[in-house]
Amino acid sequence: MKNIIRFVLMAFPAIVMAQTNRIQAHDPVMIKQDSMYYLFCTGMGISMWSSVNRVDWKKEQPVFAGISNWVLQELPTFKGHTWAPDISYYNGLYYLYYSVSAFGKNTSCIGVATNKTLHPSSRDYHWQDHGKLIQSVPNRDDWNAIDPNLFIDENNTPWLTFGSFWNGIKLVKLDSDLVSLAKPEEWYNLASRKRDATLPDSLPGNSAIEAPFLFKKGKYYYLFVSTDFCCRGLKSNYKVMVGRSEKLAGPYVDKQHIPMMQGGGSLVIAGDSTNWAAVGHNSVYSFDGKDYIVCHGYDAKDNGKPKLIIRELRWDSAGWPLVE
């Protein structure tokens, strides 16, 4: 863990939290290099923003100028946004995991790109796309290869958690190069919601669970997920749920000890209908002695547009997260 910097940020006073809510962003993740903060979001080629103060953001060029050749080979009809990036720094390189998918289908792939620097002005700035890491195929797989999140365990072993709808959230061990799967492959099921078994594999159904993010605090691994529906503007009902386990591979249970593999999960943050129609796709960070949750919300006062939300996390006496 010492060699990895996970989305390092500075402390956010209340006024900054209010102002960052104005940033329009979907599935945001952040990281700091030197004195510059970078924001990566779902968008054409992966949207990228920079800021020196986390308040005033400058739009940078997308990570990818166009659709990669490997994507066109694997998903010939792909024309949409590149989804749900995940950014980390490890052993001298920045690793950016991302999703390409047909919306509402498990015709999906997770890819990974690396860069020596995130400063676009640097002569070393160049994204090397390593191509496909994981792929899901309709009528073959009952899982969906989107929403990746890298986690480095206490033994410096890299893992990737991912997944959406179908039979839920997965965990797979990566090779030490972080751009390929470890051999022999190790796969685990972390969370799931009941799905109509009569549906064909190509349809997601109503088993809405996605966007996993793993976070270690004390003796527990916490699995944050988003449930219910995003991407519907004011009709969205996205919310963030959590479970925990003393083992990375689970089983994860909620406050009532209901396993997340059986639909369990305790509420962390949701829409309030007045300010946010819905809130979801979160990540969690520790810095400066405090913990924070970063996610997007559908702005109830701005026609349901997705906006960046940053809030402090506190922990109750039993060790469960509470939103400040």
Rank of each mutant, 00 (worst) to 15 (best):
N69Y: 07
I309F: 01
S122T: 09
W159T: 08
A145D: 04
C295F: 12
S88L: 04
D254A: 09
E185P: 00
Y292P: 00
V242R: 01
Y37V: 06
A145S: 15
F224M: 10
Q19H: 12
V279F: 03
W276K: 04
I152Q: 05
N139K: 03
N106V: 04
W315F: 15
W70E: 05
H126S: 13
L160N: 03
H130V: 09
W83Y: 12
F162M: 06
I31V: 14
L234G: 04
N3F: 09
N91I: 03
L199K: 02
P13Y: 06
A270E: 14
K59C: 07
F162N: 01
T117V: 14
V71R: 06
L223Q: 07
C41Y: 06
W187V: 10
A102S: 05
T274A: 14
Q256L: 12
W166C: 08
P184K: 02
K305A: 12
I258P: 00
P85D: 09
M44F: 11
K183Y: 07
W143N: 01
F215L: 10
V16Y: 08
S266I: 05
D124Y: 14
T107K: 07
L160F: 05
N156Q: 13
L150E: 05
I15N: 11
D228G: 01
P251M: 03
L171M: 11
L96W: 01
L118W: 04
A84E: 01
S108D: 04
W83S: 00
V55I: 15
K32M: 12
T77R: 12
T114N: 08
C295I: 04
L308V: 02
L72K: 15
H119K: 13
A249K: 06
N282S: 15
H126M: 13
L234A: 07
R54T: 14
D177E: 10
S50E: 12
Y238V: 03
F224T: 02
Q256K: 15
M261V: 13
H281W: 05
